[in-house]
Amino acid sequence: MEAVLSAAIGILAASGIWLLLRPRSFQVIVGLCLLSYAVNLFIFAMGRLAIGAPPIMPRGGFVNPAAYADPVPQALVLTAIVISFATTALFLVVLIAARGLTGNDHVDGEERAP
């Protein structure tokens, strides 16, 4: 499982970074989304992988922490999902506004000089 997930993180990150360096604004926004998947999964994986052990506690009594997934990376990623949604929305609107102002969708607002 670990090998597959780390390979997946690598592929998502590589695709995201490649798109991030492209000249069209839509490419950059898709790249940001892919990169945020990779980073969220990475942070999440730092709590180690656990199957069938969601951090839902019994009501009272003794708790053995080893029997549950680490809740801290999950809480961090939950915040990260919200913030990456917000940045995506903001970037999308900036993209639309820039497109309206400059007439093209290049990230610099003008086509590369030949």
Partner: peptide, 15 residues
């Protein structure tokens, strides 16, 4: 960069 991130992720996950 992707390979690096994958390597770090794998090492950390298996600790």
């Amino acid at each position: 960069s992707g390979t690096g991130l994958a390597a770090v992720a794998y090492v950390m996950m298996t600790r």
